[in-house]
Amino acid sequence: MSTPTIPLIAPLRERLVWSLAVLALFLIVATAVGLAVGRQRLDVSGLISDPFTRTLFFRLRLPRVLMGLLIGASLALSGAALQALFRNPLADPYTLGVSGGGALGASVAIAMGWSARVLGIPFVFLASFAGAMLAVFLVRTIARTGAVVLPGALLLSGVVVNLVSAAAVLTIQYLLDPSGALRILRWMIGSLDVVGLEPVGRMFFLLAPAWLALLAFSRQLHLLAIDEDTAGTLGVNVARCETAVHVLCSLMVGVTVAAGGAIGFVGLIVPHAVRLLFGEDLRIVLPGSLLMGAAFLVLADALARTILPSGELPVGAITGLLGGPAFLWLLRRRQQYTVM
């Protein structure tokens, strides 16, 4: 019997090792760039000898880069998971209104002056998480007719949830005093300023378990991305998988929005870049997006900090300017093979 000639696609194991190695390297380079670049030039000798440089590095530069890593990784991972879950290449925390819902939750918490913590978790995180959950629930309920989620309706309801959230945030801002308003303005566009390492550490302990839990669903999401019905007959508990992805994505987006605001399109650009480079298998796309998302946001922030001759741009402006055209390009490409 002749053995079949299996074609040119390399086995997944090879593709996985190769892609994650490349992306890890990219992440290291991006982190180095993020740490080196800034208004104040820092050098290694200064770090050792000069206390001012050391303070600048450990209180401002390092926390900001770490925050970029955490937020970028979370947003890109959520985007990749939501795209697979909804079988919609245009889904992302921003386009589905999850970020908007999170921002609204955080605004309400700030406006009410809730600075309390529950079990060490700032209340703003919880409010933002709740807002994000509510947005996912709303968007999905509106878009689902019978057994199917209509892809066009999904995105439109996401847009509407985002608009309503933005309007509500503006209303809250209007009613508040100017200092509160300035803080809320931050959620709308997204930026990464942070002082000290404690907030970053707190975020890490919330986000890292969510990353691992979501990555554990890689195979189920891979099957769901191919087809929902057959996923069900291949042993995937579809309902449980959906609930888990909703909760985990809302948690990640809620926490990142509470900390950095609604940074747009990271979850859209990054997973597609990973797909273009390393193929469609979700078992590569999910961990790949985690690594590339971290690198991407750190680089975007490095650009935001240096692009203006004086002062800096919020990083959300950079990702938005990059993401809008990427969205339109994907929309056009998508029309080739699926109908809205």
Partner: peptide
Amino acid sequence: TTTAFPFRVLDV
């Protein structure tokens, strides 16, 4: 079966 992503046949 409608697939929204360009998966390879062998992978499917």
